[in-house]
């Protein structure tokens, strides 16, 4: 005979357990992991057989000096990144200028899809390294090779996403607009365009990510300035804190673009979507962690 028992879940935890439950909080885990990681890195480096691994403090000092424009590299971090961004912007603009018409054609006409599909797939799968090296061989050292690399690395993402978006325009909404006699302009403006938006976003996001990788590689092998080239400079100078420091700049920029630019933009564009935090919490949402059941014994009447 089993008993579920008499429990009160809302009992206050004794003070001794409060510290423990504080540590069990996910936010504590996050803080712990940062502190632990940096501390471990700093402490382990002196014992490594190589002196090519930088300590966090070395990296921090390097980054701080870079930000104050004190650097032995020929260009400051601001100059390098702004040059790279200009190349990225021009290349992406070209990618959209070429990719959007092609994508529309492929989405609207089946023969265009059959004609181009295999080449688009090859373009999607092509490592950006290949684009960078090809562009380097074709155009030599200068601005042209990085820009062409960006365009080549991004254009297939634009084409495939626009084509997919055109095919996904909800037919029942088009039929509804037709049934109510909505004008052609209004249909494009209010039905087709909004349903294409997510695909434009996907094109921009993936195209940008791939283009950025290609750009850095093109700058390494086919340029004499830009963020990628500076990384190569630190590599040749055997200054690993330079590489790690620049990597952190890259991550900061990536997070900035992802969170601030894309986050804001998509929240504004998709403001009509029901947001996640408006959903009411479900009563049975219990903690998946093993920490909680200690207070409530898992009773299994009828079995055990």
């Amino acid at each position: 005979m089993t008993t579920v028992g008499t429990f009160r879940t809302l009992a206050l935890s004794p003070p001794g357990r409060r510290v423990g439950s504080l540590l069990r909080h996910p936010r504590a885990a996050r803080v712990l992991s940062w502190v632990g990681f940096v501390a471990a890195w700093q402490l382990v480096v002196p014992f490594l057989p190589t002196d090519l691994v930088p300590t966090p403090s070395e990296v921090a000092v390097f980054m701080w000096n870079e930000l104050r424009m004190e650097t032995v590299a020929p260009h400051t971090v601001y100059e390098s990144f702004s040059l790279s961004f200009q190349r990225l912007g021009v290349g992406l603009f070209l990618a959209f200028a070429i990719g959007v018409p092609l994508g529309l054609l492929m989405g609207l006409r089946r023969w265009a899809d059959w004609f181009l599909h295999d080449f688009v797939v090859v373009g999607l799968a092509m490592p950006s390294l290949v684009w960078a090296l090809v562009a380097g061989m074709w155009f030599g050292f200068g601005d042209l090779a990085p820009v062409v690399t960006v365009t080549l690395a991004a254009v297939t993402f634009v084409v495939i996403n626009v084509a997919e978006g055109v095919r996904n325009v909800p037919k029942e909404l088009l039929d509804m607009s037709g049934a109510y006699g909505v004008s052609r302009y209004a249909t494009i403006r209010h039905v087709i365009f909004p349903s294409l938006m997510p695909f434009f976003f996907a094109a921009l996001r993936y195209g940008l990510a791939n283009a950025w990788k290609g750009l850095v590689l093109a700058e390494v092998w086919a340029s004499t300035e830009g963020a990628g080239w500076v990384i190569k400079f630190w590599y040749d100078a055997h200054r690993s804190q330079g590489i790690v420091g620049y990597a952190l700049f890259f991550i900061i920029v990536a997070i900035f673009i992802e969170r601030i630019v894309f986050g804001r933009l998509s929240r504004w564009v998709f403001r009509w979507r029901p947001s996640d935090d408006r959903r009411t919490p479900e009563p049975e949402a219990t903690d998946r962690d093993e920490a909680v059941p200690a207070a409530v014994p898992a009773a299994t009447p009828g079995r055990q």
Binding site: W34, W212, K213, V216, Y246, A247, F250, E258
Partner: peptide
């Protein structure tokens, strides 16, 4: 998840070149 997710994300966003 909270302990590790930042590091997984960091390796995901770092360019392979690095």
């Amino acid at each position: 998840e909270a302990f590790l997710s930042d590091w997984v994300m960091a390796t995901l966003t770092t360019p392979g070149l690095i």
